[in-house]
Write a protein that binds this DNA or RNA. Structure first.
Lengths: 235, 235
DNA sequence: GTTTTCATGTAACCCGTTACATGATTCA
DNA sequence: TGAATCATGTAACGGGTTACATGAAAAC
């Protein structure tokens, strides 16, 4: 019922669709796995999870060790699950209704879907999205950006000369960034057009994860980073 | 006293430093003139102006017609200005204290200054900023981005193969964007290094506006948009 | 056995938007 | 004289963060 922000809700449902997780891990995935996603804080995530549960889209299950998603064949560890009264880690799992709701969100598009963060979120789950919807989103995004470019060009033309060199440079760089994204979208749209018919025409198929690996129509930039010896220099 | 968000406060002071304005116009400038600035709503702007006044950084003056910053020679229309008790447009002007406060903000740098929006705001006022500070900000921003790149690379290396093609593509594009900004910063820093000594070594000089026109060390990309026949295809 | 890291939660606050209310000025 | 735009405001809400409180598991 309560219409929690969309973006977080959407991402959570999407991630949980792939596999059940507890909040802590969910948050990490939110920050890294997905492309652009800003770091949501626990103060946002946990309450959100609660309302999703309240809506019947998730259920909380007792989970024990972090990496306890049975590695195939391995029966869910549920160690006697005798931890009756004890508070343990909570693993969130998508319910049938949750899944259904997510499908709905996936297929629905509106002006919101073209906005920066919203778009990134949508794109991140394109793997589960139907071809038609992908097209709508990509094209919507593109025209959104083109509008923006118009405004920038106009404002630039209007104010040129009266402006500081730095301000000008900032605007120039901003415009170029947008132009670059438009080109990116063009490529995507193009390859979406040719490589059509991929995955998910009808929203009933299972097996969400291993859709990767297939050759689909994506632009194919060099998908491998050059050697790059430097690794976990990060904390 | 109240530490209103920084960014809006900063931008307002900066814009008003160039010339007095009323709120309505201020907002437009915020949206367009500055590079990246998101559109603040009146609901944000006016209250903010109020507190800036309360802090003694601005004063409200009665202003009459919008374009009434007497264009030299042209008498301000001030139609009889008999509007004694009547509520008229309010023009905000920077006080001496306000100016001082802004200088202070300009010269202060902290981890905040490297964040996306904050950085854009700082950059937009580089024209009034001392060389040293500009360097700090540019370099701070750069290392901020490099950190981010590290994390992205790490996460990419960690999760590759387990990921959807689309998710991967999103990450790739995200990383490229960041890399691109780093290159931009490199250019800026470079030209900042060579073309040093420009404007504002001592914070007392007046004449804020017509600093433009001078040739400073900026990279000089083609400042004019290429022909580009396709124009207002939007709308 | 103590420190780290994992893990869950909550209350107070902050920044900003939306939607609304109001009025003055411009222009057809 | 009526519509559009300029111009100023405010109350209600929304979505998110920070800082805090708590505790279990792992690492040393």
């Amino acid at each position: 019922m309560s219409r929690r922000s969309g973006i977080l809700e959407f991402a959570v449902l999407g991630l949980l669709r792939e596999s059940p997780m507890h909040g802590y891990e969910l948050r990490k995935r939110l920050n890294t796995s997905l492309g652009i996603f800003r770091a949501f804080s626990y103060g946002t995530l946990y309450p959100c999870l609660k309302t999703l549960v309240a809506n019947g889209w998730l259920i909380e299950e007792p989970g024990n060790s972090p990496a306890d998603l049975p590695p195939a064949g391995g029966r869910a560890v549920t160690p006697a699950s005798s931890l009756a009264g004890r508070r343990a880690k909570i693993v969130y799992r998508l319910t049938a209704e949750g899944k259904e709701h997510f499908e709905e969100l996936l297929s629905h598009t509106g002006p919101d879907s073209w906005e920066d963060e919203h778009f990134a979120a949508r794109f991140a789950f394109f793997g589960q999205t139907e071809h038609e919807v992908r097209m709508r989103v990509l094209e919507g995004r593109r025209s959104r950006l083109e509008e923006r470019l118009e405004k920038m060009r106009a404002s630039l033309a209007r104010t040129r000369e009266r402006l500081d060199d730095y301000t000008l440079e900032l605007q120039r760089h901003g415009m170029e960034s947008v132009e670059r994204e438009v080109r990116w979208l063009n490529e995507l749209i193009e390859s979406e057009r040719s490589g059509r018919d991929q995955r998910r025409s009808s929203p009933g198929s299972e097996a969400p994860q291993n859709t990767a690996g297939e050759t689909d129509g994506l632009p194919r930039h060099r998908g491998d980073t050059p050697p790059d010896p430097s690794d976990d220099t990060s904390k």
